[in-house]
Design a protein around this nucleic acid. Structure first.
Lengths: 171, 171
DNA sequence: CTGCTCCGTTCTTTCAGGGAACTGACCGGG
DNA sequence: CCCGGTCAGTTCCCTGAAAGAACGGAGCAG
């Protein structure tokens, strides 16, 4: 957990960070996604302190991103699984992988490859507009105030990025 | 900065987190992206401690994600801009926004809207395969060891996720 | 020369992460 | 029946990083 609470900000980035923003959480989700799902496995694989791992797992469970599933009665044993909410969060990781591969992989090449089951090829993700299906990167959009911004209407003067600091309400 | 260094791990997620993984960095990038680019603006907008803001900006600059541009001589004044590397990192934020909008926005609706310049519509991003352009989410892929994995070849037995813990080399 | 803005340092306090030992329920073997 | 081993945590102390607030200094306006 970070010192400052992000969950109250009127910003979807901040609210996402509030769930999975501190450094270990994305790696925990990655491990659970690839099948490392038990406490000791996670601890050994990540090298995380058991204390912090416990805290993170509880937090992710409380956030509805992971669920704790008892796979053995009587020596009560648990494994963690991604919920639908958590599986969608993995998409964020996939884009992070893409960026890391491009900018930090070095000469060794990417450490992991993704095979797209639909077409059978080793591939990577690309961002497109949900409507026109054309590429939609950071340079292809304008930002506007939405209903949850705390502003009554979009009053930003026209420009490259109409609304600058309306992305999050004042305290 | 986190206690444990992620930059050395053979995992693109960890290496991305090493650059922008601690909680404030994504929000700094968001602000710079929407035009909040000066020190005092950032500090006031985020409510971050000035000390930490200084550290983060240096780190992001050293990582090649931001550049410091002097917009005024003689009362030397600077603003921060996204590099190409940083602009691509914003794509990760866009996917985080998508997730936050879907799962944490509540009844107020999303705080910000993105208008796709190519088609003119308010939209959101979707992940597709770079090859076949079909949807490519967490459930649509298999993971395999890549050249940078530290493994000589992909020896994982076939299954839903062929390579489980080969995603990152052993210590 | 007084106050103001901008962009940071420096200082102290506090709190979360790291590391390692400990618990406790269960199981298998000799 | 006791020993060792596995799994899933819990408890403890120590240190280092974040928060908060004060300070600095360069320039400029009045």
């Amino acid at each position: 957990m970070q010192r400052t609470r992000f969950g109250d900000m009127a910003c979807s980035i901040a609210r996402t960070l509030d769930v999975a923003g501190e450094p270990w959480s994305p790696l925990i989700l990655r491990d659970v996604f690839v099948g490392i799902s038990r406490f000791d496995q996670l601890q050994a694989d990540l090298g995380i302190s058991r204390k912090v791992l416990t805290e993170r797992l509880r937090w992710l469970e409380d956030s509805g991103v992971l669920e704790r599933h008892r796979y053995s009665e009587r020596p009560a044993r648990y494994e963690y699984r991604l919920t639908a909410k958590g599986t969608e969060l993995v998409e964020v990781l996939m884009v992070m992988v893409r960026w890391g591969d491009r900018w930090t992989a070095g000469e060794a090449g990417p450490p992991v490859l993704y095979r797209h089951r639909a077409c059978g090829r080793v591939s990577h993700v690309e961002l497109v507009c949900a409507h026109c299906r054309e590429p939609m990167g950071a340079d292809d959009i304008d930002v506007e105030a939405g209903p949850g911004s705390g502003l009554s209407s979009a009053a930003g003067r026209p420009g490259r990025r109409p609304v600058a600091d309306a992305a999050h309400a004042p305290p």
